[in-house]
């Protein structure tokens, strides 16, 4: 999936995460994360973010996020939303839940 423009998803409210995704000239995901719980959960948040981008086939982007204690499912939802907005697409494939 190609990132075409800069897009945001999420808020700065407690339990949320604000994610910005922008096009990048270079290959790879450049990720900058701020979080009040970065020592405890920084690696996990980054893992969830990279996983979501990888599933979408995003291989080149600049991503920045400010976390306010979001659950993994919130992190994932905000990354997916920001990526689709940045790709200017709305054809997400919803998997069936268990």
């Amino acid at each position: 999936m190609q990132i075409r423009t800069s897009a945001l998803a999420g808020t700065m409210e407690s339990s949320d995460i604000m994610v910005r995704i922008e096009p990048s000239d270079a290959e790879g995901i450049e990720l900058a994360l701020e979080s009040s719980v970065i020592q405890q959960y920084g690696k996990q948040i980054e893992k969830v973010m990279r996983q979501a981008l990888s599933e979408l086939g995003v291989t080149s982007a600049r991503v920045s996020a400010v976390d306010k204690g979001a659950l993994d499912c919130t992190v994932r939802a905000r990354v997916l939303c920001a990526a689709y907005r940045a790709a200017e697409r709305d054809d997400f494939t919803w998997e069936v839940g268990v």
Binding site: A9, C73, A77, R78, L80, C81
Partner: peptide, 13 residues
């Protein structure tokens, strides 16, 4: 769109 992603991910998690 954001709410749809959020509710879907919450319900499946």
């Amino acid at each position: 769109d954001a709410a749809r992603f959020l509710v879907y991910n919450a319900l499946t998690t």
